[in-house]
Design a protein around this nucleic acid. Structure first.
Lengths: 238, 238
DNA sequence: AATAATTCGAACCACTCGGTTCGATTTCCC
DNA sequence: GGGAAATCGAACCGAGTGGTTCGAATTATT
């Protein structure tokens, strides 16, 4: 916004200039960019990084090869942009359930189900497989995906559990570890089976609820305080 | 052995004939086969299925291309043979700890540590990444890997838990699910971090012990009976 | 309608791919 | 040492690789 320092950065200068002209600068049209990424998604996700070819993407996106190379320097950069976008949509709003809780157990169940359903959905499993497969050659990609996806979610769980502990509902020595345990309990068996294609279809909602409710029960038996037990007792008798 | 039906099967016939001659039939020398697979391992594991080329394997194995095609019909079959072998070595003896138990908690800890250490070791993570990445194109591969690896181990855990329940040490409604929960608790966070390359190095033995001990504690708080508590109390006071 | 810029699409580069073939060479048994 | 058989190694196949270039076509603003 009128920042004189912007003039020193070439890209930003070009962008501003194009805005002045009422036209996007080369490689800056977000619609075209999205179109390319959409094509890239279809190809990368179902072929993997190596097997996917730029020509496939050209075909799928309905955009010429030259144009793609205006928007992305190379195949790897295009792939990274795609994964970054996927990560964003996957984890968006996933943790909202944790923001306001009333009933601890039900909040955990609700959150666990959202998490478990998302992580094991066909679409997300495909994306994760692609990332894991590519992590062999581009470790930073997997690392960044984890850091900005699952890791951030984990941090939110930690905060939530800490708050519950402060309210005297939980008693946890190692909250970091407990957060991981909770997540894993919600996924018990499901993630592993899905990622290895042992399950060909995503688990049903009923299956997920069964796993999550059991997981939450285990978790609360291990970390729940007498106060929590009393509250649940009171709630049940009403 | 002397089965006349064998003559109807060409391969077996050739094999018998070669044995009669004291020489392995073409594509039947186990040493050469192992040599090829060893080369294939190095290439496949660090490049993934797609990026690996048969020429790379030829080079790495020190075996001519023609010979490889005598032993394996194509790239995919070679890859499957490699994964099958990897699976065997990974899961071999992993579950021996469960065969004789005395002290429940310590048996679980010991087993959990073996499991967790194995699954998160650098070598095994690489192999799993390769399998997961290839599961996109060859779903049966991942499915078979899971079925004959993790699944079999899971079954052994189920048997173990059932036995402990019969002894009155555990009380479990859904043993299948509990077995998954136990496994996941032993890996809390570790597997996910390793497979996504967020951790670049395998967890230390101390880290693993911390995670496993905590996991076992959670598990036993959820499923342990009064009898178990009494036994542990008694053992501690001696 | 004139203008300016992006997008298209085809061609080009040197190289590699998986798979196959086949004669030369080496190996080992008798 | 003779002879049978496995192994080698190089060449060949058509297709495709990522990346780059550039004139033609399209687009939207003036």
């Amino acid at each position: 916004m009128g920042n004189p320092a912007a003039d020193t950065e070439k890209e930003e200068c070009e962008l501003l200039e194009s805005l002045r002209r009422g036209r996007p600068a080369a490689g800056q049209d977000p619609v075209k960019r999205a179109q390319i990424i959409e094509g890239a998604r279809r190809v990368f996700i179902d072929k993997g990084f190596e097997a996917a070819s730029m020509n496939d993407i050209t075909r799928e996106a309905g955009v010429s090869k030259g144009t793609i190379y205006v928007y992305f320097a190379n195949k790897e950069e295009l792939f990274e942009a795609l994964i970054e976008e996927e990560r964003g949509t996957i984890f968006k709003n996933m943790y909202d359930v944790l923001d306001h809780f009333d009933h601890l157990r039900e909040t955990l169940v609700k959150f666990g189900m959202v998490l478990s359903a998302k992580i094991t959905s066909a679409k997300v499993i495909l994306a994760q497989r692609t990332v894991i497969g590519a992590s062999e050659r581009i470790p930073e990609l997997g690392s960044r995906f984890y850091e900005r996806g699952p890791k951030r979610g984990h941090d939110k769980v930690v905060i939530f559990l800490r708050e519950a502990a402060e309210r005297g509902l939980l008693e946890i020595e190692d909250v970091e570890l407990a957060a991981y345990q909770f997540t894993e309990l919600c996924l018990s068996g499901l993630f592993r089976q899905c990622i290895f294609a042992y399950r060909t279809k995503a688990p049903t909602q009923a299956e997920i609820e069964h796993v999550v409710r059991s997981g939450v029960t285990v978790f609360l038996k291990a970390y729940g305080t007498d106060k929590l037990a009393a509250e649940e007792q009171a709630a049940q008798s009403t």
